[in-house]
Simulated scan of single mutants.
Amino acid sequence: MDFDTGSRLKEEREKLRLSQRQLATATGVTSGMISMIEQNRTSPSVATLKKILAGLGISLGDFFAGGGDGGTKWHFRHDELREITPAAKLGEAGGGVVFRQVGRPGASAVQMLYETYASGADTGAELYSHDAEEAGIVISGRVLVTVGAETQLLTAGDGYLFNSRTPHRFHNPGPDDCVIVSACTPPTF
Rank of each mutant, 00 (worst) to 15 (best):
G136R: 09
S140R: 12
F170S: 09
R17E: 12
V98A: 14
A47G: 06
G68N: 08
G55Q: 08
H171R: 15
T151S: 15
E150W: 01
M36E: 12
Q39E: 05
H78L: 12
R77C: 01
E11H: 12
L23W: 03
G68K: 12
Y117K: 09
A121T: 07
S108T: 11
G96V: 10
M33S: 10
V97Y: 05
V29F: 07
S182V: 11
A47Q: 14
L16F: 02
A54N: 14
L153S: 03
R13F: 05
A109N: 13
E134F: 05
E80L: 05
V29T: 09
S164K: 02
T5Y: 04
R77A: 15
V145D: 01
K10W: 03
L113P: 09
K15I: 06
D62V: 10
L56M: 09
S140C: 08
S19D: 04
A125P: 03
L90C: 06
Y128A: 04
G94Q: 05
S119I: 11
G124F: 02
E14W: 00
N172L: 10
L113N: 12
C184M: 15
L81V: 10
T5L: 12
R17C: 10
N40W: 02
M33P: 00
L81N: 08
Y160T: 03
P86V: 01
A109K: 13
R100G: 07
F64R: 04
R142E: 13
H78G: 04
D158E: 05
R165W: 00
G91P: 06
D176F: 10
R13Q: 06
S43V: 05
V98M: 12
C178E: 11
L60V: 14
T116L: 13
G66L: 02
N163M: 01
D2Q: 14
P167R: 04
S108A: 15
D69P: 00
L81M: 13
R142H: 06
T27I: 04
L81T: 09
G124H: 05
D177R: 15
T146C: 03
K89F: 15
A132R: 00
G157E: 03
D79E: 13
I52A: 03
P167Y: 01
S59L: 00
G67I: 03
S7F: 04
P167A: 03
V29Q: 08
A47T: 09
W74Y: 11
A47K: 13
